[in-house]
Design a binder for these strands. Structure first.
Lengths: 253, 253
DNA sequence: GCAAAAGTGTTCGGGCTACACCCATGA
DNA sequence: TCATGGGTGTAGCCCGAACACTTTTGC
């Protein structure tokens, strides 16, 4: 629970009043007027869930928004979102983080134009980060009333994740270090939103060299059944495993 | 040639001196301290080429950089890059434009941290935009000395284009309104960097419903040969034509 | 007729799906 | 021994690559 009290208050720093200069300080800690947000997904109980924070202030009071905040003047975008997720919502266990999109519509923020760069972050299914009180997980398929353009950003993230599950090994970022194929198929089902047959998933991911057996087994439960073999992802960094689905280079190249 | 003189001077507005406040104005026209850039590709003579502008001032004097400039305070990102390409390099005929990435490394700009959002723009092969004197097309495979992190951004754009040629209909944005299959295969070859057999390209794109015959023909040249049928892309907006290369939803869904 | 360029037919292989069948365990 | 869940074998389909062959033109 470290830091969650202070974290809550600072979670979503307000913009300066409309019309005020974006940046008044000139020292190295001046903020840049640029926002960094994160769509953090985790599979929780058969649902793809996203971490949201409930605003206590206008505008969009009581609405839910993405975690994040102002970019510091001397930090990189990815460094910033990592810092803010760690400091403000106590999320330190991202297995994957990638840039999603930058939004800059003049109308996206009622207090004047604020640019926001959104990231897509993934947390594996086996951990349960302690998050502040006003922060919680919501099923991506049943989003609550959200502020600003954040709902649209969540949809972008969902789309990106779905696409990458098809041609990369992102699965590693959703799954725990070791898992059975049927567990894995549950993660894929939740993230993709449609059924994924365990029997074929195993073969696809094995053929692509994404997963391998650990040698371990999970004993069967009370209802019987054959013990399930444990697998792990061979790489725990993003790799494109099916680069040229079509129009691939000729064999001799 | 309209506006190309003035355009040149304004092409790449300098950042304020390092250490000065990012924004000093508070009226609606204050700039935001945010840069917008574009990787504009066109197939020119069997080469994928990118539009670059040669800097006349330090830093990176004489180096080549991407066209773009400061984001106005009340314009959207995409609106801004369209405006700047039109005003500054006289490029108005983009057949496709999409956001690429945002870079914000503190060290990317010697005069202090400046965020830049890059777009990927495509110009069809049949037009030849009149560009200012210090602006010219360069083969993406033989980039000149480039300033800032712009070479890396070009590579991101190239990568994005290559990937999208495989599973979308982006080809429409590279090709003229009508074309023969062998012309089209040249565009694909240039963009992908490897050989693309016209005979199979035709079948792939026909099966996917991307292209259709116009009914017209191109007479054969002096050296003979059968006249080539003319084709067009059925859609001239980006569509994903091969969504689930794998892990596609079950038939009954 | 011959070369050149476009277009078609056909075969092959790979990858994914579906589904039947076999295996290992608990009660 | 039966139900349960895991795992394997196999057949079918679709897609794209390769390549031989046919068609239509200019000279």
């Amino acid at each position: 629970m470290r830091g969650s009290e202070a974290a809550t208050q600072a979670l979503y720093d307000e913009a300066p009043e409309a019309g005020a200069p974006v940046s008044e300080q000139t020292d190295g800690t001046a903020d840049s007027g640029h926002e960094v947000l994160a769509v953090v997904f985790q599979i929780r109980g058969d649902k793809l869930s996203v971490l949201l924070w409930q605003r206590a202030r206008r505008p969009y009071e009581e609405h839910w928004v993405l975690p994040g905040g102002r970019l510091g003047a001397v930090e990189g975008l990815d460094v910033s979102i990592r810092r803010q997720l760690a400091q403000k919502v106590d999320v330190r266990d991202l297995t994957h983080l990638e840039q999603l999109e930058t939004r800059g519509d003049p109308g996206r923020h009622p207090q004047g134009r604020i640019l926001a760069t959104a990231y897509l972050g993934l947390v594996p299914a086996d951990i349960d980060p302690v998050v502040p009180e006003d922060t919680s997980w919501h099923a991506a398929s049943e989003l609550p009333d959200m502020g600003f353009d954040h709902a649209a950003i969540v949809h972008s993230g969902r789309k990106r994740l779905r696409a990458k599950l098809s041609y990369t090994n992102v699965g590693f970022a959703l799954a725990p270090p070791e898992f059975t194929v049927s567990e894995l198929s549950r993660y894929y089902r939740a993230a993709l939103g449609h059924d994924v047959a365990a029997t074929n998933l195993r073969r696809v991911l094995l053929r692509r060299g994404q997963i391998e057996e650990t040698g371990g087994f999970v004993p069967s439960g009370r209802s019987g059944g054959r013990p399930a073999a444990l697998f792990r992802f061979r790489a725990r960094r993003l790799e494109i495993t099916d680069a040229f689905a079509v129009l691939r280079p000729p064999a001799g190249a």
